[in-house]
Write a protein that binds this DNA or RNA. Structure first.
Length: 298
DNA sequence: GGAATCATGTGAT
DNA sequence: ATCACATGATTCC
């Protein structure tokens, strides 16, 4: 363990927080992810990790595998820079252009095209949500407490909160559409989490409706993200090329960062050209956790 | 290999 | 106008 304690503490705060029914297990998983994320350069062994958490290697292995669908070793490999590069695919492959077609013709596991989206009109965007009723509530998710926001037209926002960070998280989202009317509604929002975080519930026959509220540029970027197949990744410049503005790679980064429906609009599948995970609005640890989870599921 | 530097498009103030 | 960016390429050590 060569990372300074302060850094470990910092990441600890940004990691997913235990709120699931299997409480203590999740805490274990969270700490494993955090440890691996911090120390992946050293490729720590299962024994090392277990010793760090003061648990038996076999027990740790079992708990982690049940949640993540892959062993700690597998997860470690999934988090490595090499792996991110592999997700990018072989050179020159126009991943984004073909994604749509592949998703439709494939066996249905290839692509999470279970999302139908509609964009708000520019007028509605300028009104900053005026006239819109947004129902919202926090629910447990595998990646921490999830804030769900929905209009009668579909899912409009999905955010993650750390322990005690609920208010800040809500404010973060509210700032985007300050003129909307907000109603806390656990009943109306609960079905969304069940659908979104259980892959078994993803179905082309029963698409999830999402509402993209943003500028024209942002919406085009988000639509491009929706074309990235499950368990794959693209670079920020790939997206810039895909929307026909090859020089706007930096602007693309900003637009991806502003994505209000995290996870569903897979902003975690955008990485730097080197394969490095460059940033995530809800914490880099969470980005790695989600990509690792996709690796196990895929 | 890194750190520093620059060109760059968008969106917010 | 000006500024901040979840970038990327180039140019120095």
């Amino acid at each position: 363990m060569n990372a300074p304690l302060t850094l470990a503490q910092a990441v600890s705060q940004d990691a997913a927080v235990n709120v699931t029914p299997r409480g203590s297990d999740y805490e274990t998983v969270r700490r494993v992810i955090e440890l691996i994320t911090l120390d992946y350069r050293d490729q720590p062994s299962l024994e090392t990790i277990a010793a760090e958490l003061d648990q038996s290697p076999t027990q740790l292995q079992k708990v982690f595998t049940r949640w993540a669908g892959l062993s700690p070793k597998g997860f470690l490999q999934a988090v490595t820079l090499d792996h991110a590069k592999r997700l990018l695919g072989r050179e020159g492959m126009p991943l984004l252009e073909t994604a749509f077609e592949v998703g439709l013709s494939g066996p249905g596991r290839l692509h999470d095209l279970f999302v139908t989206h509609e964009a708000m009109s520019p007028g509605e965007w300028k009104a900053k949500g005026a006239g819109l009723t947004i129902r919202h509530a926090f629910h447990p998710s595998p990646f921490g407490l999830a804030l769900v926001m929905a209009t009668d037209r579909g899912l409009a926002g999905l955010a993650f909160a750390d322990q005690g960070g609920e208010a800040a998280c809500f404010e973060d989202m509210r700032r985007r559409w300050p003129n909307a009317e907000y109603i806390e509604d656990r009943e109306a929002t609960r079905p969304y989490v069940g659908r979104i975080f259980n892959r078994a519930e993803w179905s082309r026959d029963r698409p999830l409706n999402v509402v993209l509220i943003g500028t024209d540029f942002q919406v085009s970027v988000w639509q491009s993200l929706l074309k990235i197949p499950f368990g794959r990744a693209v670079t920020y410049s790939d997206v810039a090329n895909d929307i026909g503005k090859p020089k706007a790679n930096r602007a693309v980064g900003a637009a991806i960062g502003a994505n209000p429906i995290s996870f569903v609009v897979p902003c975690h599948r955008a990485v730097g050209k080197s394969g490095a995970l460059t940033g995530y609005h809800w914490g880099l640890t969470r980005k790695r956790a989600i990509l690792g989870w996709e690796q196990g599921e895929g």
